[in-house]
Design a binder for these strands. Structure first.
Length: 734
DNA sequence: TCAAGGTCTGTTTTT
DNA sequence: CAGACCTTGA
């Protein structure tokens, strides 16, 4: 019966069973953090301490929330329903809908995403006569976000806080922005937390209500919380103090996004008598990998102190490999070859990943893997609801739901093209301001008065006739049918059908997927909430593919084999981070390296290249200091770094704007290695592909060759449209 | 209004 | 180099 407890080690069990009172669990990488959290959740329920809806469980990502829900259900042996389990934002949105009036919103408020925010800010800046060329709106957005991260409403921002943006106008602009949001009955992501915290601070009755509702609180990834999130949690936990936070200060890699590791240190102060339990037994990685990671992170100061120890399996395992290479091409080749050889030995591709510092680095590996015909998946990138077509479709849906949604109206009024340009839009804005009416109403009145010219007027009238029809349809046939009809009748689907670009078919697919997804919701409103807070990219089929992703995206994942390329000064640690955040920045970079290494179960291959192509030209770089910080005993170095160093010294060097101009630039074009000379750059192919041939490309699919020049082929792809690609990236189709 | 050409600028990302 | 963004000209 206590079966679920028997699967835990002593510390884990303690963390699960210490149910009452504040508890901080410092869980090192791979020490069973999620297991503790989910088991604890289930334990609280199974011991009858609380009903499922009395535990507030908070995560950062939807993925983590989903996972937790599944695992709790698994322990309970039945689907866990009625839980308050979700991201900070989703939970706050849910709460805020009940108290929206307390902050001057109606409960049907819209949640704006980054795109809407930015457009709104631009308008606010324009109205405030701030030159958008001198001061980029993005910078203001970042400032406002940081303020919100710290729980600062415009009134709480002191003049001293007001940075030098637009000569100290940021605070005023922030206030104006909030006013606009109110006028639109909208909140941005930051507002969800900011408002809820304000409400809990200012309304003891509401606070007391939540204290009764949630006798238990669980928090995942605590090291990533920012100040408002912390304040929100503290308010909610204040009465009963049954709060359990799980985190790892060594894996704090989001300070640039407002996260404050200090929240971990503060925990004991705010909750006197808090228990602290350390989970240090790692069940994921081999001893050498753990030792290497520990040795590296030991270079950081101000840690809470944790040492990962091998959990079960004995101390064997391959040492961490450090490979020195001449240039980035060689690095990509090395990684490709090793993946191939592991694959030959029967290792699954899905158990391998290439983790890098920045997104642009994926490209080199993508190209290499395409030539080797190794399937891969790029993790990250655009999320589903960030795609233009999805955002457009959602804007249409929002107009249906709330005709006064100015931002949605502005987005779709000329998509597809209706001839509504800058001028017409300006007239609408003017009218809307004059009469204090929504933009759409202004547009309609202008059209009816004939203030808009023929074509534009007809188009606007037709659009409104459409919306009238679709709203009727919504009443009668429900939201699924309506959305599909709307997309067709508005000409939106047609627009993409006419579009000849390569991604148009994919976009149409996405739109279909969207309509399918709407069917999962009872109401349009429910769907709209989901879409702005939760909707993610459905990962295509669980097929066997190598993962390519940033180190940030890799957090929380694990693989048998992990490749860590690009460990060079300037790139990793990133020069920019060090310039901006100094010693603190460097420590965060080191934690990122630690996160990377601890993703590996059995093998970690670190590499660096002496020369790398950045933008147009070649630059040389020296190995990352993190490589030197790996304990020698755990590391096997290969690729004759010494030789590389000699060459770098021998090469003519000149200063220049490199990575911050710090590093000696060596050869503009690297001297090729002997190995590279032996391999002709372009292997002459006897089987040159003739014009008219049917070919297959890993990324673009099937197509027909329309022209050939040297090794470049012009191909009309069936799905992806016309492209020019190198012949070695395609194979002839049978 | 819109397509074509020119300039600029290059982290990390969730909600 | 390559994508994003903006200005320009029709």
């Amino acid at each position: 019966m206590n079966d679920y407890l028997s699967r835990l080690n002593a510390e884990q069990r303690e963390a699960v069973e210490t149910v009452d009172g504040p508890l901080l669990v410092l869980a090192g990488a791979g020490t069973g953090k999620t297991r503790v959290l989910t088991t604890r959740f289930a334990h609280i329920l199974l011991t009858g301490r609380a009903f499922p809806n009395q535990v507030l469980a908070v995560t950062f990502t939807n993925k983590a929330a989903r996972e937790m829900r599944e695992r709790v259900s698994a322990i309970l042996g039945r689907p866990a329903e009625g839980l308050w389990l979700g991201t900070f934002h989703a939970l706050c949105a849910r709460m805020l809908r009940r108290h929206a009036d307390l902050v001057g919103l109606s409960s049907s408020f819209n949640i704006l995403d980054t795109d809407d925010q930015l457009r709104l800010l631009k308008q606010v800046m324009e109205a405030g006569r701030v030159d958008a060329k001198r001061w980029v709106p993005q910078a203001l957005m970042a400032i406002i976000q940081r303020w919100k991260d710290r729980g600062l409403t415009p009134e709480r921002v002191t003049p001293a806080e007001d940075t030098d943006f637009a000569d100290g106008k940021a605070r005023t602009l922030y206030a104006a922005y909030q006013e606009r949001l109110h006028a639109l009955n909208a909140a941005d992501f930051g507002d969800l937390l900011l408002y809820m915290t304000e409400i809990l601070r200012g309304h003891p009755d509401v606070l007391a209500q939540y204290h009764r509702m949630f006798p238990y609180i669980l928090v995942d990834e605590y090291q990533d919380t920012n100040l408002v999130q912390y304040l929100w949690l503290r308010l909610l936990a204040q009465a009963h103090k049954n709060i359990c936070c799980v985190g790892d200060d060594d894996q704090s890699i989001y300070s640039w996004r407002g996260a404050e590791v200090e929240n971990i240190l503060r925990f004991e102060k705010d909750f006197p008598g808090a228990r602290i339990i350390r989970l240090e037994r790692n069940y994921r990685s081999t001893a050498p990998i753990l030792a290497a990671a520990s040795g590296l992170i030991a270079h950081n100061e101000g840690r809470l102190g944790k040492t990962l120890r091998p959990g079960g399996n004995d101390a064997d395992g391959e040492r961490v490999t450090v490979v020195s290479l001449w240039d980035s091409d060689e690095e990509a080749r090395m990684v490709g070859e090793r993946i191939e050889s592991l694959r030959r030995d029967g290792h699954a591709l899905a158990e391998m990943a290439v983790l890098m510092r920045a997104g642009f680095q994926t490209r080199a590996f993508e190209e290499r893997l395409i030539t080797l015909a190794i399937p891969y998946r790029v993790v990250g990138g655009l999320r589903f609801y960030e795609r233009a077509e999805i955002r457009d479709a959602i804007a249409y849906a929002r107009m249906l739901h709330q005709p006064a949604d100015d931002l949605a109206f502005e987005r779709i009024v000329n998509v597809p093209r209706r001839g509504v340009g800058e001028q017409a839009l300006r007239a609408m804005h003017e009218r809307a301001r004059e009469r204090q009416i929504p933009l759409s109403a202004a547009a309609l009145s202008l059209a009816e008065e004939g203030a808009l010219r023929g074509k534009v007027r007809d188009a606007i009238k037709e659009l409104f006739a459409g919306f009238a029809r679709w709203r009727e349809l919504l009443e009668r046939d429900g939201h699924v049918v309506t959305l599909a009809t709307l997309l067709d009748e508005s000409g939106y689907t047609e627009m993409w059908k006419q579009d000849k670009s390569a991604d148009a078919p994919g976009r149409l697919e996405n739109l279909k997927e969207l309509v399918r997804a709407v069917a999962d919701f009872d109401t349009l409103a429910g769907f709209l909430d989901h879409v702005s807070l939760v909707m993610e990219n459905e990962e295509s089929a669980e097929s066997d593919r190598v993962g390519l992703m940033t180190l940030h995206a890799a957090k929380g994942l694990e693989f048998d084999t992990v490749f860590l390329p690009g460990w060079e000064e300037g790139l990793f640690p990133s020069q920019r981070t060090m310039d901006e955040s100094g010693a603190k920045g460097l420590e965060e970079e080191r934690r990122l390296a630690y996160v990377g290494l601890t993703r590996a179960r059995r093998r970690a291959i670190v590499s660096h290249a002496a020369n790398r192509r950045i933008y147009a030209n070649w630059q040389s770089s020296i190995p990352s200091r993190f490589i030197d910080e790996l304990p020698d005993a755990q590391v096997e170095r290969s690729g004759s770094a010494a030789l590389q160093r000699d060459r770098m010294i021998a090469a003519p060097s000149f200063g220049g704007a490199g990575f911050g101009g710090q590093f000696p630039m060596v050869a503009r074009r690297p001297v090729r290695t002997i190995e590279a000379w032996e391999q002709p750059a372009r292997p002459a192919r006897a089987d040159a592909i003739p014009v008219g041939a049917r070919v297959f490309h890993q990324k673009f699919g099937y197509g027909t060759v329309t022209a050939a020049e040297d090794d470049k082929l012009d191909i009309a792809f069936d799905k992806a449209g016309a492209k020019r690609v190198l012949d070695r990236f395609v194979e002839r189709a049978k």
